[in-house]
Simulated scan of single mutants.
Amino acid sequence: MSTTFLKGIDVSHFQGSIDWQTVAKQVDFAYAKASEGNSVTDPCFSANYAAMRAAGVARGAYHFLHADVDGAEQARHFLGLLGTPQAGDLPPMLDVEKACGTQCAAIDSCALAWLKQVRDALSCTPLIYSSRAFWNSNLAGCAALTDFPLWIAEYTSAAAPVLPQGVSSYTIWQHSQTGKLDGIAGAVDLDLFNGSAQALAQLARPAR
Score class of each variant (00 low, 15 high):
residue 58 A to P: 14
residue 62 Y to Q: 02
residue 63 H to D: 02
residue 63 H to F: 01
residue 65 L to M: 15
residue 72 A to C: 11
residue 74 Q to S: 10
residue 75 A to D: 12
residue 79 L to I: 00
residue 80 G to L: 13
residue 84 T to I: 11
residue 84 T to Y: 05
residue 86 Q to P: 15
residue 87 A to T: 15
residue 87 A to H: 13
residue 88 G to S: 02
residue 91 P to N: 01
residue 91 P to M: 00
residue 95 D to P: 15
residue 95 D to H: 08
residue 97 E to T: 05
residue 99 A to S: 14
residue 101 G to W: 08
residue 101 G to H: 09
residue 102 T to I: 10
residue 103 Q to K: 15
residue 113 A to G: 10
residue 113 A to D: 14
residue 114 W to M: 09
residue 114 W to F: 15
residue 115 L to D: 07
residue 116 K to R: 15
residue 121 A to E: 04
residue 122 L to N: 12
residue 124 C to F: 12
residue 125 T to Q: 13
residue 126 P to N: 01
residue 127 L to G: 06
residue 129 Y to L: 07
residue 129 Y to V: 10
residue 131 S to G: 14
residue 131 S to P: 14
residue 132 R to M: 04
residue 133 A to F: 10
residue 135 W to T: 04
residue 138 N to M: 11
residue 139 L to S: 06
residue 141 G to W: 02
residue 141 G to K: 06
residue 142 C to H: 07
residue 147 D to S: 09
residue 148 F to R: 07
residue 148 F to N: 06
residue 148 F to T: 06
residue 149 P to R: 05
residue 153 A to I: 08
residue 155 Y to N: 01
residue 155 Y to D: 00
residue 156 T to L: 05
residue 159 A to S: 09
residue 160 A to I: 02
residue 161 P to H: 00
residue 161 P to F: 00
residue 161 P to Q: 00
residue 163 L to M: 05
residue 163 L to Q: 01
residue 164 P to T: 01
residue 165 Q to K: 08
residue 173 W to N: 03
residue 173 W to Y: 05
residue 175 H to T: 02
residue 178 T to W: 08
residue 179 G to V: 00
residue 181 L to N: 06
residue 182 D to R: 13
residue 182 D to W: 05
residue 183 G to N: 07
residue 184 I to D: 02
residue 186 G to D: 00
residue 188 V to A: 01
residue 188 V to T: 07
residue 188 V to F: 02
residue 189 D to V: 04
